Simulated assay, not measured.
Amino acid sequence: MSAFPFSGINLAITTPFDTQGNIDYARFETLIEGYIAAGVHGFVLSSGTGMHVYLSKEESKELVAFGAKAIAGRARVIAQTSALLVEDVLERTRHAADCGADGVMVLPPFFEGPTDDQGIVDFYTTVCQAGLPVIGYNVPQAVGVEVTPALFGKLSEIPNFVSVKDSSGDLAAQASLIRTDLPTMNGADPLAPYALYAGAAGLIWGGANMAPRTCVAFVNAAMERQWERAREIWRELEPVMSLIWQGDYVQSVYAGAQLSGYGAGNPRRPLARLSAEKLEVLKAALDPLASREAGLA
């Protein structure tokens, strides 16, 4: 492992729901145990893949508390504490600290929030006062704010601001962040091998819910600079990771995880389960990977 505190795979774990749409904590604990056994290096609780925007503040806080207790120091814990109000972000972040989280991931201000660099710097300066390491989040297609290399440099001067997760899906844009030599985390599934080869500091990976052992083997090989081995494993991962990035991402991860034995139920409304047609396409792409995954158990 590198000196960066969030290197390797940080699994953006799904949040399981029961048939009534409530969080299924018994299943959540089972999933955590399975992923720890698979060797994941860390967890992101209440992630985007984990339906953060469709959890109430209290649900998200309860999920973080339960997850951190279940993980119990066996892997690192990152909590997403994004919210519209900066006061809510601070409250959630302090709660995550109280629960023993190692860091938090926070979106820049969204839904008509500030888009100028100084406004973003001011926002993260406030968030970083909560005391935990903060990972910023670059997903301009969703929030309308792009973390450029220049902005990344300014943010990195803030005490406790440690990294940016790039989920833009733009390889050139991510490479420009990595070239700053500041710790950049990849959050775009199809870019994982390119990001690691270019020098990404770590990954926050939703698609790994479907094949954690294979993803861990791939990342470990890359971190050990066994590039031929990493490329061999990536050939198994690439068809699925590219497919889910093309649309219905969260629904696809839930469906794929169900198919591979890491089921979390269905996504919470308003997201619907994956259509039958898309499920068949996903299953066809996933079958070879699922067989490989089963062989690693």
Rank of each mutant, 00 (worst) to 15 (best):
F4V: 08
F4R: 05
S7N: 12
S7H: 14
S7I: 00
G8F: 04
G8R: 14
G8K: 10
I9E: 06
L11Y: 04
A12K: 07
T14L: 15
T15L: 09
T15H: 06
P16I: 06
P16G: 03
F17W: 05
D18H: 04
D18K: 05
D18Q: 05
Q20V: 12
G21S: 08
N22R: 14
D24P: 09
D24E: 10
D24T: 02
Y25C: 05
A26F: 11
A26K: 14
A26S: 14
A26V: 12
R27E: 11
F28D: 13
F28C: 13
E29T: 07
T30M: 12
L31K: 04
L31Q: 11
I32P: 03
I32N: 04
I32W: 03
I32Y: 03
E33I: 07
G34Y: 04
G34V: 01
Y35S: 03
Y35L: 09
I36G: 10
I36P: 12
A37M: 06
A37V: 05
A38R: 11
G39A: 08
G39P: 06
G39Q: 08
G39Y: 11
V40Y: 07
V40M: 08
V40C: 05
V40D: 08
H41K: 04
H41E: 10
G42K: 11
F43A: 03
F43K: 06
F43N: 02
V44I: 13
S46M: 09
S47F: 01
S47R: 09
G48Y: 06
G48M: 14
G50M: 09
G50Q: 06
G50S: 03
M51W: 01
M51Q: 15
M51D: 13
M51A: 08
H52L: 14
H52I: 00
H52Y: 11
H52F: 11
H52M: 13
H52R: 10
V53H: 12
V53W: 13
Y54T: 14
L55K: 04
L55H: 08
L55S: 02
L55P: 02
S56E: 03
S56W: 09
S56R: 02
S56P: 02
K57A: 08
K57S: 04
K57W: 01
E58G: 00
E58D: 08
E58V: 01
E59Q: 11
E59G: 02
E59R: 04
E59A: 02
E62L: 09
E62P: 00
V64P: 00
A65T: 00
A65K: 11
A65G: 03
F66Y: 10
G67E: 10
A68N: 06
A68T: 15
A70E: 02
A70H: 00
I71H: 09
G73F: 01
R76H: 08
R76F: 00
V77M: 02
I78S: 12
I78Q: 12
I78H: 11
A79M: 06
A79R: 07
T81V: 09
S82K: 04
L84F: 08
L84V: 13
L84Q: 12
L85A: 15
L85P: 00
L85Q: 14
L85W: 13
V86T: 13
V89F: 03
V89Q: 06
L90R: 15
L90F: 10
L90E: 15
